[in-house]
């Protein structure tokens, strides 16, 4: 990209400053996220779940797209957040915001613990160890049915209205507003993180994990840090789902959920921050529409969609669009 090399002339700080500047397309995108309130008032519950999935995908992007950690067990933190939020409300603390903070903190603590292990491995071993830890947690939640309700799901989740004003009703207005706000706030944090020197050295670790320590960057500490941040965000996504739907089941910890979010992120384009959000929108809207038309065989159409994206837009939708834009700049000077 031509712009980057120009910025690079002004040194790394100049580069980072340029990256943090808000582009017009970004502002337009975030304004557009408000449109469902006006245009699709009966789709807000779906919109809230898209926002939650987007948050989950952005969290995975931080570790996968920026630090090169492919995880097949990211639902562990999503599920921990969901169960924590559900249990807090079950035991009488139904206020959502404080519940959200508590639940994400708990997921973060677990994330830090896991990061100590995760940081020692790479490649296939890393994928399989995250997968194994996720599956173990899933089985543990099934076994601890006295706490989690087991396969029937956690019962007795009661969430107070947001700010004691807006209850999570059938229309999903409060749900979408809440989920969107949290997505936006965490997105700001994630954006800040990756456009900092810390974020830059993460990308260095992704590209060459052996070389970074040689340059004096404490790569393991960096990975632990970003893994913990990602776990907090995943936990927040899980807690949001639990709070906006008042349901928690084993499915929040399942391999399926880990795999889905990975598919969503790759579909949108990993390592691009907006990739997870676009992937979530496309995947979930497509799923909703396909399964509405064809409840039994919609997998077929989703499968074709994924295949088509790989063939025609490698590196996900944003990757493909990026190349298209670069080509456009070349042909129209």
């Amino acid at each position: 990209m031509a712009t980057v090399s120009l910025e690079a002339l002004r040194g790394p700080h100049g580069y980072l400053r340029a990256q943090t500047r808000w582009r017009r397309t970004e502002i337009a995108f975030w304004l557009a996220t408000l449109l469902p309130f006006l245009l699709f008032p009966s789709y807000l519950q779906l919109a809230s779940q898209i926002a939650i999935t987007a948050l989950f995908a952005v969290s995975l992007d931080l570790i996968l797209g920026y630090a090169g950690i492919v995880s097949l067990g990211h639902a562990a933190f999503f599920g921990l957040g969901a169960y924590a939020a559900g249990l807090i409300s079950k035991f009488g603390w139904g206020e959502p915001l404080s519940g959200l903070v508590l639940a994400s903190t708990l997921a973060g603590v677990a994330g830090y613990g896991a990061s100590v292990v995760v940081v020692r491995f790479r490649h296939l071993a890393l994928i399989m160890i995250t997968l194994g830890m996720g599956l173990l947690l899933h089985e543990a939640a099934n076994s601890a049915s006295w706490l989690t309700g087991g396969a029937d799901g956690l019962q007795g989740v009661r969430i107070r209205p947001l700010l004691e004003l807006f209850s999570f009703d059938l229309w999903g207005r409060a749900a979408y507003a809440y989920a969107l706000l949290m997505l936006f706030l965490t997105f700001l944090v994630a954006r800040r993180v990756i456009n900092s020197p810390f974020g830059l050295s993460l990308r260095g670790i992704r590209e060459n994990a052996v070389r970074m320590p040689a340059l004096g960057a404490p790569s393991r500490a960096h990975v632990r840090k970003v893994y913990t941040i990602a776990a907090v965000m995943a936990g927040m996504a899980g807690a949001l789902l639990a709070q906006t739907t008042s349901t928690v089941s084993l499915e929040v910890l399942s391999f399926q959920r880990s795999a889905d979010v990975l598919v969503i992120l790759i579909l949108g384009g990993a390592g691009r921050l907006y990739g997870g959000i676009l992937g979530a929108i496309l995947y979930m809207v497509a799923r909703d529409q396909f399964s509405g038309i064809n409840p039994q065989y919609w997998y077929f159409w989703i499968g074709l969609l994924l295949i088509a994206v790989v063939l025609f837009l490698p590196n996900g939708i944003l990757g493909g669009l990026g190349r298209a834009a670069a080509w456009w700049r070349r042909v129209s000077p």
């Binding site: 598919v263 499968g303 295949i307």
Partner: peptide, 27 residues
């Protein structure tokens, strides 16, 4: 065409094939 593509693209492609095959078998 994808032997040299990234792992992630291979992953997405083959998951797509799994989806199609599951729906196909059910059909």
């Amino acid at each position: 065409p994808l032997y040299r593509a990234s792992d992630l693209d291979q992953c997405l492609l083959t998951i797509g094939i799994v989806f199609v095959s599951v729906a196909g078998a059910a059909y």
